[in-house]
């Protein structure tokens, strides 16, 4: 096989911008984002599909970008943590919620938590703390003990109208 057969051009709409890059067929979406598009907000934690640090939103649904091939995202829309924004001094309600309720310590899991929480609230605008816990089952945090993360997501649900605290 010639090297050409190992690569192809993919076009992905990332945070609203159409991006075309030549990738190896085996390139993972997370590597396209981090290494080729230099969007390093998306983290790699476990690299074994378990921790959720690499979570991005693909066509509206939270996915682990370490377990999706870049070629599988061809023609689709991806939102990363860099694409979040909103009325709280530029931050979205979820981002501001993590600030207000101190939903992080080291911050490593945070981009994944923000994306999984954003996907949750888009489907279920007012989840109970129990529902938040279930929705974040795919995201591991080694610092906070989750309590503050749950409160952060609840904060976002309560401030979805964008009214400043």
């Amino acid at each position: 096989m010639s090297t050409q057969e190992w690569t192809k051009a993919v076009t992905v709409t990332v945070n609203g911008r159409r991006e075309t890059r030549e990738v190896e067929h085996r390139t993972l979406l997370v590597h396209l984002l981090r290494e080729q598009l230099r969007l390093t907000g998306t983290h790699i934690g476990c690299d074994t599909s378990n921790c959720g640090a690499c979570t991005v939103i693909l066509d509206g649904a939270a996915v682990k970008s370490c377990t999706v091939l870049a070629v599988q995202a061809h023609g689709h829309e991806v939102t990363t943590v860099e694409g979040l924004s909103g009325p709280f001094d530029g931050l979205s309600a979820v981002q501001e919620g993590f600030r207000q309720e101190h939903g992080l310590q080291c911050g490593y899991c945070t981009p994944g938590m923000l994306m999984a929480s954003t996907a949750l609230l888009s489907e279920q605008p007012d989840p109970s703390p129990e529902q938040v816990r279930h929705a974040l089952e795919g995201n591991i945090c080694r610092c906070t003990g989750y309590e503050m993360i749950v409160r952060s997501v609840r904060w976002a649900a309560e401030h979805s109208d964008g009214a400043t605290p």
Binding site: S49, A61, V63, K64, A116, E137, G138
Partner: peptide, 9 residues
């Protein structure tokens, strides 16, 4: 099955 991200794929 798994978690929401797994079920989405």
């Amino acid at each position: 099955v798994g978690d929401p991200q797994v079920r989405n794929r």
